[in-house]
Design a protein around this nucleic acid. Structure first.
Lengths: 104, 104
DNA sequence: CTTGACACCTAGCAACGCTATGCATAGGCT
DNA sequence: AGCCTATGCATAGCGTTGCTAGGTGTCAAG
């Protein structure tokens, strides 16, 4: 599969993962791998900038935390983030249906 | 919907349209609009470069034609293009299922 | 004490679709 | 005649986005 396939849909997936509760970046990567059945095994260089972008857009809020000697940045959805997730889900359904229509 | 959403999936859709018979670029735009239920109303600046790319990759072959005074470039699938379409369809299904798994 | 997992970061790159613009023909309207 | 719209092709330049490749540092296992 082409690597660029997920362009534009990654944000929605990150928001969806964080809708299940606050997570730090590394854990988000894990979740994406598991929930996609191993299809999305994303490098850190993809996730961290995406998290920063989402926070800059006001869809996420972060806080530093220390667990077993390691510092981690925990992200959670903001109110705007939760609203955005709803939109993005709708966008995805519309998009997927349209692609199905063309590929059929 | 974010405009960048279709990144990586446009090629598959163009191939799918041309699997129904040779078409010229402008007609491909029409087909995409119709088969997507109006969701994909793509500008020429998106389609023409994509067609050139696919031809450069050997998935399409083109020939000039003249119809009612206008010259048009008609594209058709090559053997490799037909094979690629099969692959891309599989990729799409895998991808869509994975995204569904994450967004669920 | 080295390897691997965990955990974060960023500069630079490549790919892709879009905007804007240009050219040209045909047909309809005024 | 003049203008507009639809048809039809083309490309330079831009912005977004994900990835590569490199860096920092902790901890547990071998």
């Amino acid at each position: 599969m082409k690597a660029e396939a997920l362009k534009g849909h990654l944000d929605a997936m990150i928001l969806a993962v964080l809708a299940g509760g606050p997570q730090h970046g590394y854990a988000v990567i894990e979740q994406l791998r598991q929930r996609s059945g191993g299809v999305f095994d994303l490098p850190e260089g993809t996730i961290y900038p995406a998290l920063h972008r989402l926070e800059a857009d006001g869809l996420l809020a972060s806080a530093w935390e220390t667990a077993s000697g390691r510092r981690r940045r925990v992200y959670k959805l903001t109110r705007r983030g939760r609203a955005a997730l709803g939109e993005r889900r709708g966008d995805w359904r519309l998009f997927a249906q349209a692609v199905d229509g063309v590929l059929a």
